[in-house]
């Protein structure tokens, strides 16, 4: 064999889980890196910069799902890129019909609004479920620390939003009215008795009342995640709907696994169907009932199918 047409040797195992995306240019690929929750220790960032400088062409791209993408990488360098990133404990992400790298905001760690440890949740899901094949379509998970929901949790297949249920310890209240003034949702009104009156129908579980009360008269009766299922974006977007409230943080992985089991089972034989479309076809009760057997404390009594967003362009396929 002559020198010019020497065969390129590449470890195809590196490509199995995806994370390598063909670019326009000949031989060039994007390598999508695994950055759960968008958190990147500086040491890993330095290693990424080093590899990008050596094998790329001067830039990286930050994806909308918090990945660092090495761009303009020659496919012949795959093995070296994977190996050198590995020295800095940096792994490649996934593509295709799998559980993707979870996204998360900063959560309660340093953010004044955060109610739960979204970073811990994202790391746990990344560690335990990342790359799991679904057999049907991609599967995205995201965590928001509070109902502000900067990460847009409800457009994930399973989206988590931090929540607390406030409970008044009336004996500690000094009647200052700060909580009622702080509540954005009209769930607290000061009564003639100089005490706040709570309307649970209006509460979004944001915890602002707990944070402002000078005497800690508001306490958390429950804390956990509000869980919405069946969201996606793309050509025909869906917003996920409510399946669970105050899901304890330590049940997140088990909950996702149960949703996945339903999806794998019900989607079999139906082609490349996304979770939200499958819920529309099957009706939400089937998934709700399955989740209720395992998570009776958290699963809601009733829900609605994922909500279709009218993009006004194209014709949404009616799921069969």
């Amino acid at each position: 064999m002559s020198e010019q047409n020497k065969k390129t040797a590449i470890d195809l195992n590196n490509l199995k889980a995806g994370g390598f995306i063909k670019e326009r240019g000949k031989d060039l690929f994007t390598v999508r890196l695994r950055v759960p929750g968008g958190r990147l220790p500086v040491e890993r960032l330095k290693k990424i910069a080093e590899v990008a400088e050596k094998y790329g062409q001067g830039a990286v791209h930050l994806s909308v799902r918090q990945s660092v993408e090495l761009i303009n990488i020659n496919f012949k360098d795959f093995d070296a890129v994977v190996a050198e990133l590995g020295e800095g404990d940096q792994r490649v992400a996934s593509c295709g019909a799998r559980i993707r790298v979870p996204t998360a905001c900063g959560g309660c760690e340093y953010n004044p609004n955060g109610l739960v440890d979204t970073q811990a949740s994202a790391l746990e899901v990344d560690r335990t479920l990342f790359g799991t094949p679904t057999g049907h379509h991609k599967f995205k998970v995201g965590f928001a620390g509070c109902p502000f929901d900067c990460p847009k949790s409800a457009i994930n297949d399973v989206g988590f939003q931090g929540a607390v249920l406030p409970e008044l310890h009336a004996g500690d209240c000094i009647g200052c009215g700060l909580c009622a003034k702080t509540c954005s949702d009209g769930a607290l009104v000061m009564g003639d008795d100089q005490m706040p009156h709570f309307n649970p129908e209006k509460c979004t579980w944001c915890g602002d009342c707990l944070k402002v009360c000078p005497t800690e008269a508001w306490q958390a009766a429950k804390r956990g995640y509000t869980v919405r299922i069946g969201g996606k974006w793309g050509r025909y977007p869906l917003v996920g709907t409510l399946f669970a409230t105050f899901l304890p943080e330590n049940q997140v992985e088990a909950f996702i696994s149960e949703v996945l089991a339903w999806y794998v089972e019900k989607g079999t034989g139906r082609g490349r169907v996304r979770l939200g479309d499958l819920i529309i076809q099957e009706g939400p009760e089937s998934l709700l009932a399955r989740l209720r057997t395992k998570f009776p404390e958290s699963v809601v009594d009733a829900t609605i199918a994922p909500q279709i967003i009218n993009t006004q362009v194209g014709t949404r396929r009616i799921p069969q």
Partner: peptide, 13 residues
């Protein structure tokens, strides 16, 4: 809320 988080004692509004 921010002043409370800084360790001051809110007395009334």
């Amino acid at each position: 809320r921010s002043l409370k988080a800084e360790g001051h004692k809110l007395l009334g509004l």
